[in-house]
């Protein structure tokens, strides 16, 4: 039985081993909460790979179902180019409809991947959907001259106008997503625009498919497409209405605001009523979407990593001071209401168990590592850990308070690397490179797991340096900052 001290109440918290490998935590209020424990096995669960493959296969099958369905209806062929164009149109529509499911933050389907991976896939697969959606009319115009009259949008029949509306909305959606920053679109404004345009693209596309009639004449096929349309609409309603309603029943309250030396802010939250909901079972290294507002329908949700132990009742987020959202976080006061949607992400010790851990972070990139280290400390874990921290100045290190609390509770070596140190600084200087890592890491370095969290360029540089030391690629796990 592990006994830990609760930071906020300074009362002991009892952490007991649980048969499932999770931990049963008895809170000072008398409630019990099951927390996922850090597994000590050397291999990740084999089931995760199979579940990933199954979800990917399901995505593929649902995307191909409309084409398969249309085979049930015998009809005369219209030549390869026209048929290929139609196939592209069907695939574009179903893949675009499925984008709602990928972005809906469903816990079960996201868990084997991590929502960050699912959102990256959402972005990457959109390029196929756009190519297919634009390829569909282009091939038609190439195949048959008579289709070119449809270019006259004003006098074209309704079915073609629906198609134009869908394609134009899709074009606008792509432009505003790829060049959001260049267009100076704020994240919340982009988010609303993205949702509205997505619904327009799919509904107009469905309207077009129904009005064309050539492929959807069969009642069974029409019924299947109507079901498809209903699912898309349900997904939109679920994400925008049902999910916020469910989250509104689990409000959180700000209990501490702690300005970090580097300019970041640590926000400590607890359930607004201890009887309303019991804690937040997350794995150290994961993140959650946060909404600093009393209104759960406000679309201003943003993802941030937890920085506290996953075994505590209170949850901390450490947030860097950039952008308009963090300005709204700055306006938070103790006692304010916030909502939390999560946890999400697969950048965790459970997903990559090992004999010891090396963490490499820059600035606020320390956040997931603070959570991992605090959790390991609460579990009494004595596996060796190394933390390499890059910062500009030695007096601007995010997380120093939390690191000080961990002293003596872990087998941890912290290496501060300062790029612009003062004259008094006697520690490491410059950047984290192969030579620096080589000086501090043990000879049995190939058996450790490596986690990197920093800006994109530094993540690449550190990954390269680690590979230069002979660390296998499957032992290097990285995350970089970057808004969609």
């Amino acid at each position: 039985v592990t006994v830990a001290l609760d930071d906020t109440t300074a009362r002991p918290v009892f952490v007991e081993p649980h048969p499932s490998g999770h931990r049963l935590e008895r809170l000072s209020s008398g409630h019990r909460v099951v927390r996922p424990g850090v597994t000590t096995s050397r291999r990740a669960a084999p089931a995760a790979g199979a579940r990933r493959a199954a979800w990917l296969l399901l995505h593929l099958l649902v995307a191909l179902a409309p084409l398969g369905l249309s085979l049930a209806q015998p009809r005369p062929g219209r030549g390869f180019l026209v048929e290929f164009s139609v196939a592209l149109g069907f695939v574009a529509l179903s893949v675009l409809g499925l984008q709602f499911a990928l972005a809906a933050r469903f816990t079960r389907s996201n868990a084997p991947f991590g929502i960050d991976v699912v959102l990256t896939y959402h972005r990457q697969i959109s390029f196929l959907a756009v190519t297919a959606a634009f390829g569909h009319p282009l091939l038609l115009f190439v195949a048959r001259d008579r289709y070119r009259v449809l270019l006259d949008v004003v006098h074209a029949p309704l079915r073609a106008q629906c198609a134009w509306l869908s394609v134009a909305a899709l074009g606008l959606l792509m432009v505003t997503s790829i060049w959001r920053k260049a267009l100076r679109l704020s994240y919340p404004a982009w988010h609303v625009l993205h949702s509205v345009l997505g619904v327009v693209v799919v509904l107009a596309g469905l309207g077009h498919a129904f009005l064309v009639d050539h492929y959807l004449g069969e009642p069974l096929v029409r019924l299947a497409w109507a079901l498809y349309g209903a699912v898309f609409v349900w997904l939109a309603v679920w994400v925008r209405l049902i999910k916020p309603l469910r989250l509104s029943r689990r409000p959180w309250r700000v209990v501490e605001l702690w300005p970090e030396p580097g300019g970041s802010l640590t926000v400590g939250i607890e359930p607004a009523s201890r009887h309303a909901h019991l804690g937040f079972p997350f794995k150290a290294g994961q993140f959650a979407w946060i909404l600093p507002s009393r209104n759960p329908f406000n679309p201003n949700w943003h993802p941030f990593s937890m920085s506290s132990s996953s075994l505590r009742f209170r949850v901390d987020f450490t947030i860097k001071n950039v952008g308009e959202f963090t300005r709204s976080v700055r306006r938070l006061r103790v006692g304010d209401r916030v909502y939390v949607d999560g946890p999400h992400g697969s950048f965790t010790l459970e997903d990559h168990p090992g004999m010891g851990y090396v963490f490499v972070g820059a600035g606020v990139g320390i956040t997931p590592f603070l959570s991992m280290l605090a959790t390991l400390a609460d579990q009494g874990d004595r596996r060796p850990c190394w933390l390499f921290l890059a910062n500009r100045h030695e007096d601007q290190v995010t997380g120093v308070r939390q690191l000080a609390r961990l002293q003596g509770r872990l087998n941890l070596r912290v290496v501060h690397v300062i790029s612009r140190p003062s004259d008094q600084w006697s520690g490491e200087r410059g950047r984290i490179d192969t030579g620096l890592l080589d000086r501090h890491l043990p000879l049995e370095r190939r058996s450790l797991q490596y986690f990197t969290c920093a800006g994109g360029e530094m993540v690449q540089a550190v990954d390269g340096a680690l590979r230069g030391l002979g660390i296998p690629a499957d032992r290097i796990h990285s995350e970089h900052f970057g808004m969609v």
Binding site: L56, L64, E83, F84, V91, F113, G114, L128
Partner: peptide, 30 residues
């Protein structure tokens, strides 16, 4: 905010399978 993972292989694979199916479908339909 973090986005990680090696997802491009999955996206390429899905895209390739979808396009291949489109090709076969249109060959069968023509």
């Amino acid at each position: 905010v973090r986005f990680s993972g090696r997802t491009s292989a999955a996206a390429w694979l899905t895209s390739a399978v979808l396009l291949l199916f489109c090709l076969l479908w249109s060959l069968a339909q023509r």
